[in-house]
Design a protein around this nucleic acid. Structure first.
Length: 121
DNA sequence: CTTCTGACGAAAT
DNA sequence: CATTTCGCCAGAA
């Protein structure tokens, strides 16, 4: 698989259970990666067990419609996130607060970009 | 090489 | 609210 995909997976792995991030939030932390690319990577998840793909939703706080999207609603509810099919979850209650400072230092990405990429509540 | 298709997103309508 | 439009860019054909 390509290099950017691997970077997306490594980042998605650090999202804690019970929290979610948007495709755009993930992209903002990876130079050269766009929201669409994050979506593409999720669709090609090599390991659906180790990589918490269900914790990535669209900027509206909803599960992007697609065949099989019902699986995501189930996974989210399993970890305490209230969301019904076709509706949106509460960013206020579940938005990922971002990677630890150590991660930012290592990657060279600044927190500002990430903060700006957050969906407006 | 060109064209088309998205697990995207922001802005306009 | 819901829809449309446009920019985005990796892959597939």
């Amino acid at each position: 698989m390509s290099n950017y995909q691997q970077r997306v997976y490594e980042l998605v792995k650090i999202i804690p259970a019970g929290e979610v991030a948007s495709y755009g939030m993930i992209a903002s932390l990876l130079n050269g990666v766009t929201a669409r690319m994050v979506g593409y990577a999720m669709a090609a998840t090599p390991d659906p067990v180790t990589i918490p793909w269900w914790r990535v939703v669209n900027a509206s706080g909803g599960v992007s419609p697609r065949p099989g999207s019902d699986k995501q609603y189930i996974k989210l509810r399993e970890e305490g996130i209230e969301i019904e099919s076709g509706k949106r979850l509460s960013w206020r209650d579940h938005m990922w607060q971002g990677p630890p400072q150590s991660w930012l230092d290592e990657s060279g990405v600044d927190i500002e970009q990430f903060l700006m990429a957050r969906p407006k509540i």
